[in-house]
Design a protein around this nucleic acid. Structure first.
Lengths: 149, 149
DNA sequence: GTTCAATATATGTTATAACATTTAATGTTG
DNA sequence: CAACATTAAATGTTATAACATATATTGAAC
């Protein structure tokens, strides 16, 4: 569906301006889809992302800095995110024995099991994007990579 | 630059999954650029968007509902956004005489002037996106529209 | 005209991003 | 070894999205 119709704006200054608005709008569209799926598991998209990063590291722990590097936002609130995951019993935090400034963050078995359950929704998540063919998805990825320079 | 290199992840489940992550990452990249520019005017991207919508309506007022429809996020905090713009003297809020449930939100002269100043940064804003050719930008817009269905 | 449903918006709440600051620990230099 | 610089993460703060709720007003039905 055309952006102009969806936000009821007749025109843009130019194609680049339209692109900026389109990215912002489409991001919001996508994230709300993902959020709807994840809310059934009582988890937010950002918390989910942390769990996946930790699973990728498992059984090694991850530091807060490593989590930040792997996350999609430039300066995320990783420490507080981890706090909330600890409350949910999905991760544990330990003092790092080799460097007392660091903490070791580890995913729990409960966290791993939750990810397994969520993995079962992969088909549904992908389906939202399958308005595009595989080649179109590839093209879109290439263009996004090029856009960032 | 390739997404895999930027977030230090070697692979994705499939192209569609990569696309989801790429959209989230690119959005964050873009918004931080826009934010840097707007912060010099002491305004957030969302506040800026409200001002632009109100300028488009000027001299007619806009209701909160209209603002919400025109905004890029599904369920934005329009009322509180307007509060903060009022504090900055950039908009005014009046009771709507024809329907006391509604309020009329109007941009002030100060708000209009600020937008004129910000308009001078358009070239800079566009320049971030000019890693793409015009045709590539068009293609990207088409694909994003198609993606949402 | 009265009753009830729908509507508009303000407000409450949680989670998050972003930026700043604080505090303690580690690394570097002399 | 001491002094200072750097680092890691926790914490403070503001703004926002999203969802829920509250309250007052308007519209619809009878």
């Amino acid at each position: 569906m055309r952006l102009e119709d969806e936000i009821k704006q007749e025109s843009f200054r130019n194609e680049f301006h339209k692109l900026a608005v389109n990215l912002i709008y489409t991001h919001s569209w996508l994230v709300s889809k993902i959020q709807a799926i994840l809310s059934e598991f009582d988890i937010t998209p950002q918390q989910f992302n942390i769990l996946r990063i930790l699973r990728g590291q498992h059984p090694s722990p991850a530091s807060i800095t490593l989590l930040k590097e792997r996350m999609l936002d430039k300066m995320s609130d990783a420490s507080r995110l981890v706090d909330r995951l600890i409350q949910k019993g999905l991760v544990e935090r330990k003092v790092c024995t080799s460097d007392r400034r660091k903490v070791d963050v580890i995913i729990t078995d409960k966290g791993l099991k939750l990810l397994e359950e969520i993995d079962k929704t992969n088909e549904e998540t992908d389906s939202y994007l399958k308005n595009l063919t595989l080649n179109e998805a590839k093209k879109l990825n290439e263009l996004l990579d090029k856009l960032r320079g």
